[in-house]
Amino acid sequence: MKKTIFFFLLGIFALNLTVLAQTAATPAPIAVDTVALKELVGKYKVKDAPIEELIITIANGKLMGEAVGQGSAELAPTPQIDIFEVVGYGGTVEFVRNETKAVVKVKLTIQGSTMEGEKQL
Rank of each mutant, 00 (worst) to 15 (best):
V46K: 03
G88N: 09
V68S: 01
L40A: 09
E85F: 05
K119R: 15
P50M: 07
F95S: 10
K62S: 12
F95E: 09
P77G: 06
K45A: 15
T92N: 08
T109N: 11
I55M: 03
G88Q: 07
V103Y: 02
A24H: 00
K38S: 14
V96R: 03
V19D: 02
N60I: 07
A24E: 01
L20T: 08
V32Y: 00
K43L: 12
I12N: 02
I58S: 04
A21D: 01
R97Y: 08
T18K: 02
A102M: 12
L40Y: 03
G65K: 09
V87P: 10
K2H: 02
E94V: 07
K45T: 15
V106L: 11
V32I: 04
T23I: 13
E52P: 07
R97N: 13
E74C: 09
L54D: 00
G90P: 14
T34R: 14
V104H: 01
T18L: 13
N16Y: 02
L37D: 12
P29I: 00
S72A: 13
E74Q: 15
I56R: 04
A31E: 12
K107Y: 01
K45H: 14
F8T: 11
G42P: 14
A49R: 03
K119H: 07
V41P: 05
K3L: 12
F84S: 05
Y44C: 11
G117K: 01
T57R: 05
T26I: 13
G69L: 07
N98G: 09
P77D: 02
T114D: 01
T57F: 00
R97Q: 14
A28Y: 03
E94K: 14
T114L: 01
I30S: 05
M115E: 04
T92E: 04
V93T: 07
F13H: 01
A49D: 05
T57G: 06
G112N: 01
T34S: 14
A21C: 06
T78P: 14
A21E: 01
K119I: 13
V86Q: 03
I81S: 09
E116P: 15
G112A: 00
E39Y: 05
L20M: 13
G65P: 10
Y89D: 07
A21K: 03
V41R: 02
P79W: 03
P27G: 12
T78H: 08
V104P: 05
L121S: 07
Y44D: 10
D33N: 15
G61W: 03
A59L: 10
A25N: 03
A31K: 13
P77A: 06
E85P: 07
K3M: 07
K62D: 10
L75D: 06
N16S: 06
I81Y: 01
Q22I: 13
V96E: 06
I30E: 04
G61T: 10
A31H: 07
G61M: 08
A76R: 08
V106D: 04
M115P: 12
T18M: 09
K43W: 02
E53P: 08
T100Q: 09
A36Q: 11
K43A: 13
V41C: 06
V104A: 04
D48S: 15
I56W: 02
A67C: 12
T114A: 04
